[in-house]
Design a protein around this nucleic acid. Structure first.
Lengths: 162, 162
DNA sequence: TTAGGTGCAAATTCTTTGCACCCTG
DNA sequence: CAGGGTGCAAAGAATTTGCACCTAA
């Protein structure tokens, strides 16, 4: 499913603007890679983007697609979903709960909430599918990282569980 | 952080029971791998589990850990978090929205909900960290997969609690 | 006894990097 | 013209698999 032309134009305009502001070069590859993500409501993976772009530009390489995608993400022009440099993790707690995830160090803690469990889903979901489970993920800084942040913000290694 | 001895014992007992019921062999490796996940509230990845088990059983191999973890997941004794065999995906929609994900085909669709956006988080979160964003992921079958699976599948009703 | 389980090592899959050439600004 | 950007190929990281030996039931 594609987004409306109007919305796509808006996204492309913002892309060019942010791109220019950041002082980065506006290459045809970047243009097409961004367009590929911006024109759809599906949430394509790198391979899908690659295939789409390749139709119009047969010489792009997969690694340019990856590099450009991370770059767009860093610029805040797109967002990443799912396994963003993380590993699979395991949980033996089978009771109903949600997760708090620290954006800095990856610390993940369970929490429960009656209010969340009573949530009602919007009608718009009916046209998409049949809901079976909902899981809430709260992102933020854990206490430890919030404390560290001010002095000299330090990065933790990728997806390291705590 | 470890779970209480009582809870751990409960989990181990259920493990042995399910294991026996399923007709699978109760090997020391499986025992220790399950115990490693069951004894903590952290959400360890395969490597972490491997390291923990290796302390008590120096000869386990990483691939046995992986195989056992998938097996435990299939038996419903543990759950997987994060990149469960998925790839990173990209989204150019920067507005506030949540996701519906089909557990069968992976289809991902955005949806919005005022109610979700007004959610109040429980106090218990305060002791963990500072919440910045909350994202809801609804899992279920998309219409297409629901149709394939069992033609007479029931539909979600409005207002049905999750 | 014997089918299922394990360890080892090699294979895959998805992503990331080094490097020399190319093109935008 | 300069320095960032690109393509290619090769490297990595996290899983996964083939195979022969081992062991719980």
């Amino acid at each position: 499913m594609k987004v409306s032309k109007k919305e796509l134009d808006k996204r492309m305009a913002r892309f060019e603007e942010v791109c220019r502001e950041s002082g980065a070069k506006l290459t045809p590859q970047r243009m097409e890679i961004f367009r590929e993500v911006a024109q759809t409501v599906e949430h394509p993976d790198a391979e899908k983007v690659f295939d789409g772009v390749r139709k119009r530009m047969p010489t792009v390489s997969l690694d340019t697609v990856y590099r450009t995608l991370w770059w767009l993400n860093d610029l805040g022009l797109i967002k990443m979903l799912g396994p963003a440099r993380e590993r699979v993790r395991f949980d033996a707690d089978l009771s109903r709960h949600h997760h708090f995830v620290c954006t800095e160090c990856g610390l993940t803690r369970d929490f429960v909430s009656d209010e969340l469990d009573r949530l009602e889903l919007p009608d718009s979901l009916l046209s998409i599918g049949h809901a079976e489970k909902t899981h809430v993920e709260v992102k933020g800084l854990c206490r430890k990282c919030a404390g560290k942040k001010k002095p000299g913000a330090k990065k933790t290694k990728k997806g390291e569980p705590l």
